[in-house]
Design a protein around this nucleic acid. Structure first.
Length: 766
RNA sequence: GGACGGAUAGCUCAGCAGGUUAGAGCACACGGCUUACAUCCGUGAGGUCGCAGGUUCGAUUCCUGCUCCGUCCACCA
């Protein structure tokens, strides 16, 4: 753009050139620094973003993963965020859209290992923890650069100078301080939980580091007697038969579970059985997830060595606090047996399997065996079968923090759009249990806990996990929770934090880093996809309330999920991914944005559709051509029409009707944006522009504009006023084309240099 | 197992805080290159608004049940 002040009233001939215009306008915006909250329509760019009496509007943009370019889903989010940002900016508010990039824990670790290290023939162990972190950091920052340019290209008017990476040292400090505060408030504790252990790599694995693999296995039917009484060494009396593929883990059984609806076991529920070989008495409990059709419908419960069983234990304990069952861990990291396992102690898992089966057979407790197909977890790296074991993890207590988080939504202090999503939120919050936050990775926020010496975990004689340092059991004296090392000999915890623990702090962490809390917190809207309402939004609410005592945002807008044209999820493996380049390079950003606003469904999924893209492109062309017509006629008749006082002009019937209709459109569009009904807003607007303004009014106006005699001032004024107003109304939706045209519309010197700061239309005197 | 959403024109979907002839785009039929636009304009055909009840003067819209799709959750980001 040569100069925005240079109003030629001419638009280039021919159809609208999307790409060229958009690139030109983007340069103009970036040069003007209009995206910064420091920019003031009258005073220009200020040095500080201080409170200047203007109302504020702030959206913290959800940070996309810093390991790839944003996909169409990310871009749809930006489109909604930007729509709201531009709308509020035009309402005169000091506006901040704050962008960021997420280190994305496990995902980035996997991507970096797969796409970078593997190609160099290395793995993360070759690099060592520190070097790995350094290189992965660099990798993410490189990706972030590309992502940033995509974000700009779609028209996101965010303050890119402030683009923040989640592992930025300032952010890390804030995140970890929250951990320390929670620990001091006794809201964080160490607890024992089931973990995926790879016996070959000798490391704990996150679920995502595991693969599923089908294999054949032997299903053994074992009788658990109800009583200890034996005749000639053989159990006599009634028994219950369970089926298992892992007989050796029976030594760690702490219950037998049946489906509560199962009539066969109706009389046995609540009774106990004798665990053979170790002669332990264990209860028969119920769980609705026990499959009555599988095996005998009775399931041995081994919470320490089967994730499903662990869950059943948690569920049972929650619902039956007076009849809790516990875990017994018998397999340890060296794949040998420990704990209360009698003569099987120190055997390997394989040896124990053989020995246990043999002994059960001798006791006459093996009913039969059959071959089945089963799925097991294997280590993604070495393909070894995962051994689930119990280990010590950090937990956040949720009882206290979740209560207020439910309350703020219930009382409407935070509103969720669409409204019905609130139900999902409440459901999730109600069932929320203490939150395990350690992850066995390198990439992320390393837990700020220090042990006085090397911490070791072991299994005691009861099968419980204990931690010790040297000879001493772990106690408060031997742990320090603080950001910096307490000194020589203190060793930091190996794990990193769950990424939700950090992203849950994103709204205030970013503003604290930028020193903008006073101005922009609480923020206004959290705009994200509905699928992470529970995972992310709920955490932001809880942690926001905990750390700042305030809600982190007032409204939550949950956009829909964009599916491929065939209605399936876009995924690389299906090959149905449509990239930003496919669209923007051909149709431009405005077209894509229109697609989101018109077709997008808050809270649910919708399909991508090339036909609709074509329609959108045609719409832009319509805007372009109509503008050419209007500008041409203004130039011909009166290019200073904006100086005229409309009260002194003579209006035709059709002029008045047009202005009246536009007034109505303004009200409707404004109302619908305010209540987050973006599709209704743009529908109304596009229909009004295309049909009322173009098809009806422009045709009508020709009679007066082309007339040899008479004074067409009223009509010219109407043509001018409507065009300018439509551009302003449409600007939040299609920012590029509207800026381009608005620049050419003659207007007074008081108007700002960019449509971004034009005043949002209120009503027209007619 | 639990929770949630959808079912409206041939297709993809809007709409419905209950109220005149239920909308759009695409597709279809007919007519128009009129000096902003054929990436366009005009005209038209096409729907018992999933099924069964209920509330109401009135229901596509609210309630209940059913059928059929889809999604999410069970500690994965």
């Amino acid at each position: 753009m040569s100069s925005p002040k240079n109003k030629t009233l001419d638009l280039p001939k021919g159809p609208y050139n999307t790409i060229q215009t958009e690139e030109e306008i983007l340069e103009f915006w970036k040069k003007g620094k209009y995206f910064k909250p420091e920019f003031h329509a009258k005073k220009g760019l200020q040095t500080k973003a201080e409170n200047d009496g203007r109302q504020t509007f702030c959206i913290i943009c959800p940070p996309p993963n810093a390991n790839a370019r944003p996909h169409l889903g990310n871009l749809s989010g930006y489109s909604y965020q930007d729509l709201m940002g531009r709308f509020n900016r035009m309402l005169g508010k000091k506006t901040l859209l704050l962008p960021g990039k997420d280190h994305a824990g496990i995902q980035s670790e996997v991507v970096f290992e797969r796409d970078v290290l593997k190609k160099q023939g290395k793995n993360k162990l070759d690099l060592g923890r520190e070097e790995f972190y350094k290189q992965c950091y660099k990798f993410c920052l490189e990706c972030a650069k590309m992502a940033r340019s995509d974000e700009e290209r779609v028209g996101l008017s965010a303050d890119f100078d402030r683009d923040i990476f989640t592992l930025d040292p300032d952010i890390v400090k804030i995140i970890l301080e929250t951990f320390v505060k929670l620990y001091k408030d006794k809201q964080i504790y160490k607890g024992i939980r089931i973990t995926n252990w790879c016996p070959k790599c000798q490391t704990a694995l996150a679920d995502i580091d595991c693969e599923r693999k089908g294999r054949k296995a032997e299903l053994t039917y074992i009788k658990y007697p109800l009583h200890k009484s034996r005749t000639a060494g053989i159990y006599s009396g009634p028994s219950i038969t369970i089926a298992t593929t892992r007989p050796e883990t029976m030594l760690a059984d702490t219950a037998v579970a049946v489906n509560p609806k199962d009539k066969r076991y109706k009389d046995l529920i609540g009774k106990t059985v004798i665990l053979p070989l170790v002669e332990r008495e264990i209860p028969i409990i119920t769980d609705p997830q026990v499959d009555m059709e599988f095996g005998t419908g009775a399931l041995k419960i081994t919470p320490a060595h089967a994730p499903e069983d662990y869950d059943i234990m948690l569920r049972w304990n929650e619902e039956n606090p007076d009849k809790k069952i516990d875990y017994i861990n018998v397999i340890w990291k060296d794949s040998k047996l420990y704990g209360p396992v009698g003569k099987y102690k120190s055997m390997t898992v394989e040896q124990a399997k053989t020995a246990v089966t043999k002994d059960l057979r001798l006791l006459g407790l093996i009913e039969k065996t059959e071959e089945i197909e089963q799925n097991v977890s294997i280590c993604e790296r070495c393909k070894e079968v995962i051994e689930p074991i119990m280990s010590s993890q950090w937990y956040v207590k949720v009882d206290k923090i979740k209560k207020e988080a439910i309350d703020v939504v219930k009382t409407g202090r935070i509103k969720i759009h669409p409204k019905y999503m609130g139900k999902r939120y409440f459901q999730w919050m109600k069932d929320l249990r203490d939150w395990p936050i350690s992850r066995s990775l390198w990439w992320g926020y390393r837990i700020p806990a220090w042990y006085k010496g090397k911490r070791e975990e072991y299994v005691n004689n009861e099968g419980k996990i204990e931690e010790k340092i040297g000879k001493k059991s772990l106690n408060d004296e031997l742990i320090k929770v603080q950001l910096d090392s307490p000194g020589d000999g203190w060793i930091q915890d190996d794990d990193v934090l769950d990424t939700w623990f950090s992203s849950g702090q994103w709204p205030y962490a970013t503003l604290m880093k930028e020193n903008l809390m006073d101005i922009f917190y609480p923020t206004d809207v959290m705009e994200t996809m509905y699928d992470i309402l529970e995972w992310w939004v709920s955490r932001m609410i809880m942690l926001g309330l905990y750390k700042t005592g305030k809600i982190p945002f007032k409204d939550v807008y949950l956009h829909g999920m964009l599916l491929a044209p065939d209605g399936a999820k876009m995924s690389k493996s299906k090959g149905n991914v449509i990239s930003m380049d496919d669209i923007v390079a051909e149709h431009g950003a405005d077209t894509l944005r229109l697609f989101y606003y018109i077709a997008g469904k808050a809270g649910s999924s919708y399909r991508f559709d090339w036909e609709r893209m074509k329609f959108n492109r045609n719409f832009l062309n319509k805007i372009w051509n109509a503008s050419k017509f209007v500008l041409m006629n203004i130039k011909k008749k009166d290019k200073n029409i904006f100086e005229k006082n409309p009260r002194g002009l003579e209006f035709q019937k059709g002029d008045k009707k047009m202005l009246k209709d536009l007034n109505k459109t303004i009200q409707e569009v404004t109302r619908n944006i305010e209540r987050f009904k973006f599709n209704l807003a743009i529908d109304t607007l596009a229909d009004s522009f295309w049909h009322t303004y173009c098809d009806e009014y422009l045709e009508y106006s020709k009679e007066f504009v082309y007339a040899e005699e008479g004074d067409p001032s009223g009509t010219i004024w109407t043509l001018w006023k409507c065009l300018k107003t439509y551009m302003e109304l449409m600007h939040p939706f299609v920012p590029f084309i509207t800026e381009k045209i608005w620049q050419q519309i003659p207007k007074s010197e008081d108007e700002p240099e960019t449509i971004m700061y034009a005043k949002w239309p209120e009503g027209i005197i007619s």
